[in-house]
Design a protein around this nucleic acid. Structure first.
Length: 453
DNA sequence: TGAGGCTGCCGCCTCACAAG
DNA sequence: CTTGTGAGGCGGCAGCCTCA
């Protein structure tokens, strides 16, 4: 389990250490795709008010009191497709401190005991008195406000406030922006809100286009003399087309989709695969892991995907945990910059910078934050799939972003090679699958999962 | 040189399917 | 019980070859 920078002296987080000291927590908003409510209930003091955001398979928005002081809320899913996959916690302490947790783990024992997950934690101090927030300013807090509205927290909060808990430390979701001091947060929050997002102002607030915007804002745009190499690691495999991989890659470089949205589809389909390494465990790795095939229940790849005509089998790489033969439920995208072949020298670069591409964004490379990054890392609930990150359509003038799932993660800038190696939870560099020898773990073909289908 | 036919490319239509 | 996309099938068209 990888942790926040300040806490990396400690290699492992227990859930009881995050939700601690539990008597001091007044209120919590907690989200996960899979819940064991009885188990989680003991993690909290029974006096603590809790809003539990959960996945509803039917995709109906709902709120319901499920335990003393607990309200379960579920967000709407268009047509019942997709899932509420966000995993986060907001822990409001009696002292005013707010602890933000963004993780990859579900709230069941298995995820915290048997497999590897990743957690990002930061404590946010309360401001002595509220400050006005610029409604146009987008930052971590404003993104969190949108997330909470997106997953139907508002009616649950109103319900608590008007019943047994009128004095909660959060009276309105918007107060997150004005009552706490977020200035120390270096991470960018990257949500995917399920549904259809139309027009640039909305499109850049969600999905891979939000990743693009966040990278621009933190100076993480791939420099013109460099090439971006992506290592995408997750526990589920999507349907990858050249078009979608290039779409994602473009955003990961910090380049707006305006550059390609008006290109003909037929032409886009013929582009080569970008330099993306897709990390997924091989069948052999799962068999030889500590829990064997039975432990492969959280890894998803289907035969018809792998066998698909244009499936990018050559992009697949082994996913081996640094921490021994344990399976990982972590989801990370690691972006690193390498010199282009025949790359420009240092001098030419500054010239290239001023005259090449740069579109609408002015602040991307500016100011003191430009301590020249070597890359960046995303960690959170997003698997590397179109359902999680979204697909763009429409025109460059009026784009549409369609997202199937609710997902949440953070992006952090990386400043050194050492930091890159430390932050990745897999052995680097990842080994490429050997054609003929290596095949991905396919759960439905394992004797341990016979009832599949 | 012109008619006819073969071939490959492109665009259009329909259908199936999406992920944890 | 969405919306968008890729695959696959089909037809039109341009280019080229062959034969009279």
């Amino acid at each position: 389990m990888h942790v926040d920078k300040q806490k990396d002296t400690r290699p492992v987080f227990r859930l009881t250490e995050i939700i601690s000291p539990k008597e001091d927590i007044e209120f919590a908003i907690v989200s996960a795709f899979c819940w064991n409510f009885a188990w989680m209930y003991q993690m909290f003091d029974h006096k603590t008010a809790v809003i539990a955001v959960d996945h509803n398979p039917r995709g109906e928005a709902s709120i319901k009191a499920i335990l003393p002081n607990w309200i379960r809320t579920t967000p709407f899913l268009r047509g019942g497709f997709g899932c509420m996959h966000m995993k986060f916690m907001l822990l409001f302490y009696k002292t005013g401190r707010l602890r933000i947790v963004v993780s990859t783990a579900n709230l069941i024992e298995y995820d915290w005991r048997d497999i590897e997950n990743t957690v990002w934690v930061q404590d946010i101090p309360k401001l002595p008195s509220p400050v006005a927030a610029d409604p146009k300013q987008e930052n971590f807090a404003s993104a969190m406000v949108r997330v909470l509205h997106g997953v139907n927290v508002a009616p649950a909060l109103a319900n608590l406030l008007s019943n047994d808990h009128p004095n909660l430390p959060l009276q309105r979701i918007e107060h997150l922006r004005t009552h706490w001091d977020w200035s120390k947060v270096k991470a960018a929050l990257v949500p995917s809100i399920a549904g259809k997002h139309e027009g640039w102002p909305k499109v850049i607030l969600s999905g891979h286009t939000c990743l693009m915007k966040s990278l621009q804002d933190m100076g993480g745009k791939t420099p013109p003399d460099k090439e971006l190499v992506l290592e995408c690691q997750g526990s589920s495999v999507g349907n990858y087309s050249t078009q979608w991989l290039n779409e994602f890659y473009c955003s990961a470089r910090g380049v707006s989709a305006q550059t390609w949205l008006d290109e003909k589809k037929a032409r886009r389909a013929k582009l080569p695969f970008p330099p993306i390494r897709i990390l997924f465990p091989t069948a052999r790795y799962v068999r030889e892991s500590v829990l064997g095939e039975a432990g492969g229940g959280t890894m998803f790849c289907r035969r018809n995907q792998w066998a698909g005509k244009n499936f990018p089998r050559e992009l697949f790489h082994q996913m081996k945990s640094k921490r021994g033969r344990v399976l990982m439920h972590s989801k990370m995208v690691l972006g690193t910059f390498r010199d282009k072949r025949g790359g420009l020298d240092r001098h030419a670069r500054s010239a290239a910078r001023s005259d090449s591409e740069d579109e609408d964004d002015a602040g991307a490379d500016s100011g003191e934050k430009d301590k020249r990054l070597v890359g960046w890392v995303y960690v959170g609930s997003h698997n590397f799939t179109p359902s999680a990150w979204g697909t763009l359509s429409g025109s460059a003038f009026n784009p549409t972003l369609n997202i199937t799932n609710y997902e949440l993660g953070v992006v952090l800038p990386l400043h050194s090679q050492e930091e890159i190696d430390r932050v990745a939870c897999w052995e680097r560099p990842p080994e490429k699958y050997v054609s003929g020898r290596d095949e991905p773990w396919i759960q439905s073909e394992s004797a341990a999962f016979v009832e599949e289908g």
